[in-house]
Design a protein around this nucleic acid. Structure first.
Lengths: 221, 221
DNA sequence: CTATCAAACGAGCGATTGTTTGGCAAATTT
DNA sequence: AAATTTGCCAAACAATCGCTCGTTTGATAG
């Protein structure tokens, strides 16, 4: 049951059946409403877009009323920024973990591509990349969003810089097209297609990687 | 004067007979209101997104009142579909023109890429590709939109099929990543960057094309 | 002159939008 | 036990949404 509006307030006058942990250990994430709102908002933003999703939709999916959202978030826009930040955090962490132990430049790129696709397609609700230049009404938070993206793209830039590209290829354009192809997967990927996200990412690198020349195999580290 | 709400109402000397009746003097292109609405709608959809653009915005930019839009278009959604169709038409025509006289398979791909980028970035208002899975509210028109896209992608499919790809590369994935990288350019391209759209497209093909082997230089078939 | 028609106006409909406010029970702190 | 904070409800708010509809204007055809 994906949608379970649990309204555990106001009602229990005296009865024993407690829905929550009787003693919510302060450490143990006492049924974090804020997180729950974030998840539902992400799902709806991804499914319908920012503008088409109303705060009542989000509240309803969470099991609370619209006005109650404003206890946790100052505005709908701030909620969007929070979802975006969570997504970028996943993306950055996944990518860094993936390339940490890989030495060969092209293998690093392949690892990064696989990680990018995996995060993008398996946590897709949080990956609001494809909201093109994001909702125009986002206004004041725009710079913050761009900063979050740049932080990730810097990682890819560094991996690309390690490649030994022919002089005819502009590394910047290489990175832009590389990330572009990966990001676009979100608009055509279907889980049932038999291809895993990681395979899709690695295949892209296979297209870009220069063919191994029979004469020279593994020249050096 | 970029935005000139020209309210020359009551004025249409030859009132653009969109539907029926008399012979529409084809000579003077009599200030087609429908076309004008289409252009303004495209600009606003591209700038702010479908949901964030109100019919009053569009009417205002055109120099008429909101209600008057409904003489030309049955609904806001139908207007969106019309803009999308116009964009796809541009894209299809541009691509077909570009590859018509090119024989070499990789050169054909380069020509298609250059054409795609040019159409995408220079008529960008009409290219509503990046509206992710388009507005969910589009509902009943969804199939029509998909059909319009598939018609274009079929052209690229045919060009890709002409390539002599290594057996490790799936042509379908090649096409998806290829189109993905091209479509994504819309989210980072800035006209002042010194790169032309055509160059950006050709550079992508340069990254994908296998390096010319010094020994064999003859273009077979 | 009269009838018809395209094209727009202008008012307003009901519904929905994001947000604010006041209050209240439960949980926590003092 | 008292005081305070937390988390939410319930109701409203002004603004805006897509859209409808009766009316009016100017042009053209018979």
């Amino acid at each position: 049951m994906p949608r379970a509006p649990q309204r555990l307030t106001r009602k229990p006058a005296t009865p024993a059946p407690r829905r929550t942990r009787p003693v919510p250990k302060p450490e143990a994430m006492p049924f974090d409403r804020r997180q729950q709102i974030l998840v539902e908002a992400a799902r709806l933003f991804a499914a319908k877009g920012f503008e088409a999703t109303s705060v009542r939709d989000i509240a309803n999916a969470t099991g609370i009323l619209a006005g109650s959202l404003y206890y946790h978030f100052a505005s709908k826009e701030e909620l969007f920024v929070a979802v975006h930040a969570a997504g970028m955090e996943i993306l950055i962490r996944t990518a860094q973990d993936a390339i940490r132990d890989v030495r060969d430049p092209w293998d690093r790129l392949a690892a990064a591509a696989a990680a990018h696709c995996t995060a993008l397609l398996e946590s897709s609700d949080f990956m609001l990349l494809v909201v093109p230049n994001f909702p125009k009404s986002i206004g004041q938070y725009r710079d913050e969003l761009i900063r979050q993206r740049d932080e990730y793209e810097a990682i890819i830039s560094q991996v690309v810089a390690g490649l030994d590209l022919p002089p005819t290829i502009d590394p910047r354009l290489f990175r832009l097209h590389f990330i572009g192809a990966l990001n676009w997967t979100q608009s055509w990927f279907r889980p049932a297609s038999g291809l895993t996200p990681a395979e899709i990412g690695r295949q892209l690198v296979a297209m870009l990687r220069p063919p191994t020349i029979p004469g020279s195999e593994s020249p050096s580290s």
